[in-house]
């Protein structure tokens, strides 16, 4: 607790972390302004006490106010710099991701030609070559997915995401999302216990977005489960909402990390113990999508016991 407090007031290390100079760093400038205000108050008090002259008081107050306003504007500029850096970071991610899409699609398409249907004479591959070709293809698809995720996050951050809502059967979406995960399910020998209420009403949401949400929750549950573990996917309507529950009995999230779970690039501290891939955007994206569709996403978790993620969506339909 005490160390955390010390770390909070250690503005030098903070400013170094933000990668900006001391005189551009809001944390430092704020402290300077505070000290100066206190000093100025005492100063003015003593000056007005020792010189029985209004002019002296007025001049000293004016000088102090000018200095404080100057520092204030420096603080604002510091904050602006940080905000600008954030905008630049988003642009950078967007440009890099776009640029990566080109060569990645080139690899994908050329691979497809190689794989071909054999109608072209010189493209007959041996079974062994096919195995390695598939490895490259899988790796490339993974990369395309990561880049796609980065682009999606970028769109959401900049408010450019588009949701095409229609009347959707969430049960069907859940089935599709789970079947897309069949490789990792069989690799980790996970048993998926699916309970989808038969009378589930259609709801007006973006199908692709909701598939991303379910896939991300279920794949997290699988990744943080033990080998041969169990994952429960429950879908039912309660009142005027549809409630999706994804429960696992895996490593869980330690309490001190709970408030960081939905942050960008968050990886659980347990991460190291379990081999997983991904860049920590899944839950951030899932929450953004759910909230954009008017729903809520939350969780309960205990380290060593497992996690349960909940999504509730209002039952709305469009004729």
């Amino acid at each position: 607790m005490f160390w955390k407090f010390l770390d909070d007031v250690n503005f030098v290390s903070r400013c170094r972390k933000y990668n900006i100079g001391l005189w551009q760093c809001p944390n430092f400038l704020f402290l300077v302004m505070g000290l100066l205000t206190v000093a100025a108050m005492f100063g003015t008090f003593f000056v007005s006490k020792s010189f029985d002259d209004e002019t002296v008081t007025i001049v000293s107050v004016t000088i102090v106010t000018t200095i404080i306003v100057t520092i204030g504007s420096l603080i604002i500029r510091g904050v602006e710099r940080i905000a600008e850096a954030n905008v630049m970071k988003n642009e950078f991610i967007s440009i890099v991701s776009h640029q990566l899409c080109g060569p990645l699609s080139a690899i994908k398409w050329n691979m497809e030609v190689l794989e071909g249907d054999g109608s072209s004479d010189n493209l007959q591959l041996t079974p062994k070559q096919t195995v390695f070709l598939n490895n490259i293809k899988e790796a490339n698809d993974k990369m395309l997915k990561l880049v796609g995720q980065l682009l999606e996050v970028n769109r959401i951050d900049e408010g450019r995401a588009i949701f095409k809502s229609e009347n959707v059967d969430l049960g069907e979406i859940a089935d599709q999302a789970i079947s897309e995960l069949k490789d990792i399910i069989s690799e980790r020998e996970i048993e998926i216990k699916k309970r989808i209420a038969p009378d589930l009403p259609l709801i007006f949401v973006d199908a692709t977005g909701m598939k991303t949400v379910v896939r991300s929750l279920v794949s997290n549950a699988i990744k943080y489960s033990r080998q041969k573990g169990e994952v429960e996917v429950d879908l039912k309507s309660s009142g005027r909402k549809i409630l999706l529950t994804v429960k696992d009995w895996g490593v869980g999230i330690p309490r001190y990390q709970h408030r960081k779970v939905f942050e960008k690039f968050f990886r659980s501290a347990n991460e190291a113990r379990y081999r997983t891939d991904g860049i920590g955007l899944g839950l951030y994206l899932a929450r953004a999508i759910v909230e954009n569709l008017g729903g809520k996403l939350w969780f309960e978790s205990e380290a060593g016991k497992g996690s349960t993620f909940y999504v509730s969506l209002p039952i709305v339909q469009k004729k």
Binding site: P103, A106, W109, N110, E112, V113, G116, S120
Partner: peptide, 15 residues
């Protein structure tokens, strides 16, 4: 303008 994409497209179109 990307030759590698163009090659793949031309090949598949011929096939």
């Amino acid at each position: 303008d990307d030759r590698s994409l163009q090659n793949a497209l031309v090949e598949i179109v011929h096939q």
